[in-house]
Structure formats: C-alpha cells, structure tokens
Amino acid sequence: DHDVVPEDKFQETLHLKEKEGCPQAFHALLSWLLTQDSTAILDFWRVLFKDYNLERYGRLQPILDSFPKDVDLSQPRKGRKPPAVPKALVPPPRLPTKRKASEEARAAAPAALTPRGTASPGSQLKAKPPKKPESSAEQQRLPLGNGIQTMSASVQRAVAMSSGDVPGARGAVEGILIQQVFESGGSKKCIQVGGEFYTPSKFEDSGSGKNKARSSSGPKPLVRAKGAQGAAPGGGEARLGQQGSVPAPLALPSDPQLHQKNEDECAVCRDGGELICCDGCPRAFHLACLSPPLREIPSGTWRCSSCLQATVQEVQPRAEEPRPQEPPVETPLPPGLRSAGEEVRGPPGEPLAGMDTTLVYKHLPAPPSAAPLPGLDSSALHPLLCVGPEGQQNLAPGARCGVCGDGTDVLRCTHCAAAFHWRCHFPAGTSRPGTGLRCRSCSGDVTPAPVEGVLAPSPARLAPGPAKDDTASHEPALHRDDLESLLSEHTFDGILQWAIQSMARPAAPFPS
C-alpha cells in the first residue's frame, strides 16, 4: 500500500487522527484517494484483494465477484509491481515495509483507509498491559489484515481490525468495519463480527460495544468508541475503539438485554438511515425525530424517553415518601432524547437536551391539597369587569335574561352582576328603583315568574340570613337542586349567576 499512500500523506493522516480522531482521518484520506487517478484506485483494489485478505475476510469475495470481468485485479505471486511496468521484474528490497512494521508496532494501528489505518492507538496503548502477550500477537497480524480498504464507483468500504477477539475476553470487541457502500446513491455502514460483515439490516451488537450512531460526518466517531472515555459513568459499556482492553462492566443492572439487537429503522417514522440506538431497549431513532430533536450524538450512555420514564417511576415512589426537613431528592440522569409524543421536562434553567451534561430531575413533595375552585371561562368573567365610571356595571355583549332568554333592554344586578328583565323577575308590577337594581334572587323575592315553557326556580334557592346585616342577608345558599333548576333554563347567565354566588365573597367592612 506504500505505492498507493505516500509517506507524507501517511504522516498527515496520523497527525489528523491524533488531533480530530479516526473518523475524520478516514474521511480525509478517502476524499484524497478519490481525487487520484484511476491507476492509484486500481492499485488500491489490488492491494485489498490479496489472497491473505480474501482468506481472512470471507465477505470480500462477493465484492470481488461483483467487479466487471474485464477488470484485472489479480496479484502476481513473485511480488508487487506497478501496473504500468511491462516487465515482470522483482521490485527492489522494500524498506517501507520495515517502516510500516515499526510504526504500526509503535502506534498499534494508524488512522488511514489502508491496512495502516483504523484502530485507535492511544486507547490501545492505555489498555494494553493486562493483555500484552495476546495483543502483541495481534499486532503482528495487523499489517496483514488490519485495514481492508475498498473503493469503487459501486462499493466503497473501509475495514478496521481490532485485537478484541482475544480468547477469554468477556464481551470482547470482535472488530470495527467502517463501511461506506455507495449503492444507488445511498450510504450504509456496517460492522465486522468474527470475520463476517453485518449491514444495518442485520447488524449484531457484538459483546459490549454497539453501533451508536451510523454517521460518517462530524467530529463524533462512527461508533461511540473513545478509548479514553473507558466505561460509562454508571458502569455503562465498553467502547469499540478500545482495542485489546480488559473486560469492562457491560450494562447497567436495569438493562433488559446485554447482547440485544437494535432495530435498523426509526421507532417514530419507521424509516432507515442514520440512527441513534438506545442503551436500554432495542429501539433506534433519527436525531430529527426525537422531541426535542438533537443536533449531535450525546457522549456516554444514552437512553430513550421510555427508558428514562421507567427509571424515574422506579425512583419516584421512594422520593415521595414523607421525609421531614430533607432537601428534594435529586436523581442524576443521562441526557435523554425524547421520541415524538413523549416529553420529560427538567427543571427550568437546565441546558437543552443533547448537550454533554447531566440533567437533574428533582422530585419535590406534593403540595397540600386544596379545595378545587369553580372553573370559569374568561368570557364568563367579562360582565364582572365591565364597570362604568360611576361604579355601575355596563352590559356585556350577548347578555340575556335568565328567565325569558331575551337580551333586549336587559338590566344588570348590582349584587350578582346577572342580566335580567324587571318585568320577568317582578311581574307583579313592583316599581323599579332608580339605583341599586337587584334581581329577584338578590332582592329576596322568590315568586316564580309566569313564563310559559320555563321551569320556575326551586323555592330553596334563597336562604336569607339575619336582617340586621343587609349585605350578609342576601347571601344565597345554592344546592344541587338549585343548579339543576338553573340548568333547565338553558341560559348561560343562569349558570354564571350560580357560579358567582357559589364563590365566597369577603364580608362587608363594618362602618367606622
């Protein structure tokens, strides 16, 4: 592969990997390779389809078979030569091979799209000592099968071997295949498990690692696999990028399955594409389908809103127990993405979901129960707010008499603000006073009005108090039968009158 990737590009890729991570280095090298001529790309395919690569990765054979028959990708048995050289000459001794072996032994695996480039050397060096003999053996194999790289107009793939297949390693990572398949204008990513390549439709969760975000852009890794992070704060999961590491605690105790298979379609829109997988259930989501939507993949363990709600429900009964003089119970939860139609709101002032922060849900004790107040519409209280300059209440639009249902020339009671006709409430011909108009209920007259088809109010509507207090003497005590009587009149003013009279009014101040 030294004929494909020059030394300066190799060093530039290593520097970019240390600065921005393996995914960015892979993407940059792939983009550079696509700008080369067809001879360089053909050399790339020839390096990929060597015999030892085909033996190690069985899924490469179907890719090789898909090439046109007129494309010669065979390799000479006596060494490598550029395709432009007409004579089959043995190339001179390859010093770059020693360079590659020494550099890969030092860096474990470079971040390139060629056999030198995919593992994360920093994480491997940190986690190597417990498994040094086995990992050293794996390093000797890295130059042979560490990076199976493929690129063409139909298929483009980048393979990364790992030393996680050490025997006896619980939940060992089998390997990473960062794979971009450009077929019919689409893009897919796969993962390699035990020599087999699994596409998103049959993606397997190998051991402790999972394909957290099938994305090839942005600074985030394709698999949430930063070796420096180790395990999740809650004892979460091992990262795919942690090559040759000792077994780590796999999943939280509440995880239903340690080796679950995540779905390959969004649980909201039932469509495929780039998904984020939940650590607590097999569901996966688009970032845009979450509520609120996320802009980037959160670091650490992530769970959907259903799993978060289940966790909150487990903690909430203990938080609601009476604990005198104790601060509110704080339950730190990872930043969760909410699927459509589901929402768990945190306290005000918290950062938005999706940031690399930890939301704190506070379970406050329930407030003391209070008697429910009568629910009145805002339009129902409008007549009470229509007060004239002299303190006389004006008529609201649409006000109707509670007896006849007519809204023409209605009066407004100064005591309960109900609309009424003087002739309907006082049919006996009582003279109307000039000021202080009161309806039949507030004036103490319980004589029913002779209106055909309208039920008369119940005599129990009024329960006047002592006459010594004029204001308190007109406080009506309405009961269920009074409400039914008012409802039978089918008037809004009657219902409003009952609601206003049912509310307690402050006692009249004593004259000074």
Score class of each variant (00 low, 15 high):
I276R: 08
W302S: 13
P328K: 12
L462Y: 14
R295Y: 14
P247V: 13
A417P: 05
G341Y: 05
A371Y: 14
S254F: 10
P351L: 12
E265Y: 07
A284H: 11
A508K: 03
S339W: 15
P389W: 15
A467I: 11
A370F: 11
S485V: 12
R303Y: 02
A418H: 03
C401N: 03
L250A: 10
S254Q: 13
H382R: 07
S379R: 11
E343S: 11
P322R: 10
C304E: 15
Q242F: 11
P397E: 10
A428Q: 09
A399N: 00
V360E: 10
R345E: 09
T301A: 07
D356A: 10
L376K: 08
H286S: 14
E265G: 12
D255C: 13
P332T: 08
P298V: 13
I495N: 03
S443T: 13
V387W: 14
A371K: 11
S306I: 08
S299M: 01
V246E: 11
L455D: 04
R423T: 14
W498E: 00
C416E: 02
Q316K: 11
P293F: 15
S369R: 10
A380V: 09
D481R: 02
E489K: 04
L359A: 02
R440W: 09
R295S: 12
E263Y: 04
D482T: 02
G398S: 09
A467E: 09
C404H: 02
W498K: 02
E296V: 11
P383N: 13
E330A: 11
R338V: 13
T491G: 05
V344R: 11
P348E: 13
G300I: 07
P253N: 04
L294A: 11
K362R: 01
A366R: 07
P466T: 14
G341H: 07
T491C: 15
A418Q: 00
E314P: 12
D356C: 08
S254P: 04
T471D: 15
E314A: 10
R480M: 10
T357C: 04
P327N: 10
L395G: 09
G465A: 11
G280F: 12
V403P: 04
L337S: 14
L252R: 10
H286C: 14
S305E: 08
P332L: 11
P347H: 05
A396P: 05
V454W: 05
Y361K: 03
R295K: 06
V268H: 15
R461S: 03
R400M: 07
P332S: 12
A284V: 04
A380I: 14
A419F: 09
A449I: 14
F285N: 14
G429Y: 13
Q497N: 15
M355E: 07
L384K: 08
A417G: 04
L364Y: 07
R323W: 09
E350H: 08
A310V: 10
E274N: 14
E390S: 13
G391Y: 06
